[in-house]
């Protein structure tokens, strides 16, 4: 676990220089073969209590048992492979939705179809010294969302639950 494989494999005269992260828990005690996310080189590793007891040893021609979850290239502006990049990194399945963003989800309507202020930027709307009243004047502040809401109402997409 808790180690990285900094791949130094030379391919076409260029050193791979990809850092493959062996994430904690999964690799804490682990033996098997793992690929580099960039060049696909397969390494055998045997980790005990987080230490590389054996490896990484190249195993040319063999299939990996597992892929890293994440890898990046610090010498190339930190280009990276997110989890689940096909053939390079393994997917991370235990997620809250089938899509994964990792950045703010711009939401205008709750799951029952009513407006919720989950998107930005919001137009300025405070009074003196940052004061706010107890009203969201959506019609004035975000007329396009208000319109969309009226459409939803008409189409019956606004529900109680």
């Amino acid at each position: 676990m808790c180690d990285i494989i900094w791949c130094k494999k030379e391919i076409d005269g260029k050193i791979c220089n990809t850092v493959n992260y062996l994430d904690p828990y999964c690799f804490w005690n682990w033996e098997g073969k793992i690929n580099c996310a960039e060049c696909g080189t397969v390494y055998y590793i045997h980790m005990i209590q987080g230490f590389m007891y054996k490896g990484p040893e190249e195993r040319p021609g063999e299939e990996p048992d597992i892929m890293p979850l994440y890898a990046d290239k610090p010498l190339d502006g930190y280009d990276n492979y997110l989890p689940g990049t096909e053939g390079r990194t393994r997917p991370y399945n235990c997620l809250p939705r089938h899509i994964y963003l990792g950045r703010a989800d711009m939401v205008k309507f709750s799951i029952r179809g009513r407006p919720v202020r989950g998107w930005c930027p919001q137009p300025p709307c405070s009074g003196i010294a940052g004061s706010h009243g107890f009203k969201w004047d959506i019609q004035k502040l975000s007329p396009e969302v208000w319109e969309e809401y009226q459409e939803k109402l008409k189409k019956g997409e606004v529900k109680e639950w």
């Binding site: 676990m1 808790c2 180690d3 990285i4 992260y21 062996l22 994430d23 904690p24 209590q49 987080g50 230490f51 979850l69 994440y70 990046d72 990276n80 997110l82 989890p83 991370y92 997620l95 994964y100 990792g102 950045r103 703010a104």
Partner: peptide, 22 residues
Amino acid sequence: MGARNALQALIKTYTLTTRWLR
């Protein structure tokens, strides 16, 4: 600060932190 909560950021940060902790 917010972006550091992305899954990939956790994987990377904690792998290297544990590399130190071992």
